[in-house]
Simulated scan of single mutants.
Amino acid sequence: MNLLKGLEKEYYIEKYTIQSLFSFDISPFVQVFQFEKGNFIIQEGSAPEYLFYMVEGKAKLYVSHKNGKVSLINFLTPPIFMGEIELLNEEKYSKSIQTSSKCICLGIAIEKCKEKLLADAHFLKYLCIFLSNKSTAHSTKYTKHQAYPLENKLAEFILLSSHEDIYREKHTEISEYFGVSYRHLLHTFAQLSEAGMIEKIKMSYKILDREKLQALADEIK
């Protein structure tokens, strides 16, 4: 994790117009963080010090179970807030958020301006809309998982989770995410490979035909 300062900080604050989400001057409370791939933005069980606003990159949301198992909940793509539930005190301790590519996040120091944040009607209105859209997206994802074959869902997932056309997710994790058997997942990967959309390279897959994958993914929409 790197903390960006000076002109770099100003650049990202201006580029992603975070000030438009608030009715008070937010810039004194904002820091810009650069997370490398594999870094944790938020550790599970911790109380976040920052309300993060991811503006570049991709990340994964995880939860741990009492039996020691760890489950992938969702992929996170910008622009998205992270730690907003903790800010509202509905949930004291957070789930894990780990980067799957280099990420840029604008971090708002919660303790320095929590009262201002919770009294800002403009920000709270935006947050309500954001949380509503987030809830709708989760419901839609669940419906998609029930209504479409794995081939379509996997095509969409590969496009979402790949970095520079390389897909490297764990089969065990993804089979659980989709609620299918490991064998079914491997069979579907083989189908996409035979169709010339992807190619297996050691422990990963390379995207060969993005348009065909996108066409499969678009059938879900």
Rank of each mutant, 00 (worst) to 15 (best):
K153H: 04
A121P: 14
K125Y: 15
Q98W: 00
D218V: 02
K206E: 11
A109K: 10
N152L: 01
L213A: 03
V63A: 09
L61R: 05
L213F: 01
L4T: 13
K92R: 08
E36A: 12
I104T: 04
N89H: 11
H184Y: 10
I198W: 05
Y177N: 04
G196H: 02
F75Y: 14
Y148Q: 07
N39D: 15
L216C: 04
A47K: 15
H163F: 02
K60H: 09
L150T: 04
E84S: 13
Y182M: 10
Q146G: 01
K9N: 15
I26W: 08
E164Q: 02
K92A: 11
E10H: 08
H145A: 01
L208P: 13
E115Y: 10
S64A: 01
A47S: 15
G196K: 04
K58G: 09
S23Y: 13
G57H: 14
H187M: 08
K95Q: 10
A147T: 06
G68W: 00
K5W: 07
G83Q: 10
A109V: 02
K153P: 00
S204W: 04
I110F: 14
I207K: 11
M1Y: 01
N133V: 00
H65M: 01
T136M: 07
L72Y: 10
L186Y: 12
C103R: 09
A190G: 06
T17K: 14
L88I: 10
K141T: 01
T99E: 08
A190D: 12
G6W: 14
E10I: 14
L106K: 04
H122W: 11
E90N: 12
G107C: 05
A195I: 08
K9W: 15
Q19R: 07
Y16A: 02
L4V: 14
F157Y: 03
Y142E: 05
K15M: 13
K170R: 06
L154C: 03
E10N: 14
V30A: 07
Y62I: 02
H171E: 05
L51F: 15
S94L: 07
K37M: 12
Q43K: 15
L51Q: 11
H145D: 03
I174T: 02
T136F: 10
G107N: 07
A121L: 13
Y11E: 05
V63F: 09
K5F: 12
T136Y: 10
E86Y: 08
I166G: 03
T17L: 13
K60A: 12
N39S: 13
E194C: 05
A155P: 04
F24A: 09
E156L: 02
F40K: 15
H171R: 05
F29D: 03
N2K: 14
S23V: 08
A215Y: 04
D218I: 02
Q214F: 03
P79I: 08
C128R: 04
T140E: 06
S96N: 12
A190W: 12
